[in-house]
Amino acid sequence: MPPGALRGREHLLPAGGRALDVACGRGAVAAWLAGRGFAVDAVDVSPVGLAAGAALAPGVTWIAHDLTLGLPVSGPYDVVVCQRYRDPALYPALVEVLAPGGLLVVTVLAEVGDSGGPFRAPPGELEAAFGHLRVLASEEGNGEASLVALAP
């Protein structure tokens, strides 16, 4: 299944190349990207999630890593996806590994349309962090914020 921010926008994906799934969990997005011909690196702290992902898509490179220490990979990536993991300190690194013209897809929990909390993005956080890219879609509401953008 495509990442939530890409549903209905799958045409924005490049024809192929390298993809990075940050905080991949059980690997559904990584498997989806691999099924579209991407060479995928998927990163998560959970060995249980990575094992589930490896069973789902054995061709993906599964990387166990604590993202609070930064990204364990270097680009360039044609697609970078980060769903449901919010660490504003990591935002510059997501951009840094993007290839020129690469597609960034980010979805985080948000305060907009929700009661708030320490793990939710305040209004406008993704636009502020990634507004220097070519923003193709940006939405906030119902406790979620998402952004789809192209690197220059």
Results as ranks from 00 to 15, higher is better:
Met1Glu: 12
Met1Gly: 13
Pro2Thr: 05
Pro3Gln: 06
Pro3Trp: 06
Gly4Thr: 13
Leu6Asp: 07
Leu6Arg: 12
Arg7Glu: 13
Arg9Val: 00
Glu10Phe: 02
His11Ile: 03
Leu12Arg: 11
Leu12Gly: 07
Pro14Cys: 11
Pro14Tyr: 13
Ala15Gly: 14
Gly17Asn: 07
Ala19Val: 07
Leu20Pro: 06
Leu20Ala: 01
Asp21Glu: 04
Asp21Ala: 07
Ala23Arg: 05
Gly25Leu: 09
Arg26Gln: 11
Arg26Tyr: 06
Gly27Asp: 01
Gly27Arg: 03
Ala28Gln: 14
Ala30Pro: 03
Ala34Glu: 05
Gly35Glu: 05
Gly35Asn: 06
Gly35Val: 06
Arg36Gln: 07
Gly37His: 13
Phe38Met: 06
Ala39Lys: 14
Ala39Trp: 08
Ala39His: 12
Val40Leu: 04
Val40Met: 08
Asp41Val: 13
Asp41Ala: 15
Asp41Thr: 13
Asp41Phe: 03
Ala42His: 03
Val43Trp: 05
Val45Phe: 12
Val45Leu: 15
Ser46Glu: 03
Ser46Asp: 08
Pro47Met: 04
Val48Asp: 10
Gly49Arg: 10
Gly53Cys: 01
Ala54Gly: 08
Ala54Thr: 02
Ala54Val: 02
Ala55Met: 02
Leu56Gly: 01
Pro58Tyr: 07
Trp62Met: 08
Ala64Arg: 15
Ala64Gln: 15
His65Ala: 13
His65Pro: 00
Gly70Ala: 05
Leu71Tyr: 09
Tyr77Thr: 03
Asp78Pro: 08
Asp78Ala: 15
Val79Tyr: 06
Val80Met: 12
Val81Phe: 08
Val81Ile: 09
Cys82Glu: 02
Gln83Pro: 00
Gln83Trp: 07
Tyr85Val: 07
Tyr85Met: 05
Asp87Ala: 11
Ala89Val: 11
Ala89Arg: 15
Tyr91His: 11
Pro92His: 10
Pro92Val: 08
Leu94Met: 01
Val95Trp: 01
Val95Pro: 00
Pro100Val: 01
Pro100Phe: 11
Gly101His: 05
Gly101Lys: 12
Gly102Glu: 06
Leu103Gln: 13
Leu103Pro: 01
Leu104Gly: 02
Leu104Ile: 10
Val106Met: 08
Thr107Glu: 15
Thr107Pro: 01
Val108Leu: 12
Val108Glu: 11
Ala110Trp: 02
Glu111Pro: 00
Glu111Ile: 06
Glu111Val: 15
Val112Pro: 02
Asp114Asn: 12
Pro118Met: 05
Arg120Asp: 00
Arg120Lys: 15
Pro122Lys: 14
Pro123Arg: 15
Gly124Cys: 09
Leu126Asp: 03
Glu127Trp: 13
Ala128Arg: 15
Ala129Thr: 04
Gly131Ser: 10
Gly131Ala: 09
Arg134Tyr: 00
Val135Lys: 07
Val135Glu: 07
Val135Phe: 02
Leu136His: 02
Ala137Leu: 02
Glu139Ala: 13
Glu140Thr: 04
Gly141Ile: 10
Gly141Leu: 12
Asn142Cys: 08
Glu144Gly: 01
Ala145Thr: 14
Ser146Leu: 15
Ser146Glu: 14
Leu147Asn: 01
Val148Leu: 11
Leu150Cys: 05
Leu150Glu: 11
Leu150Pro: 00
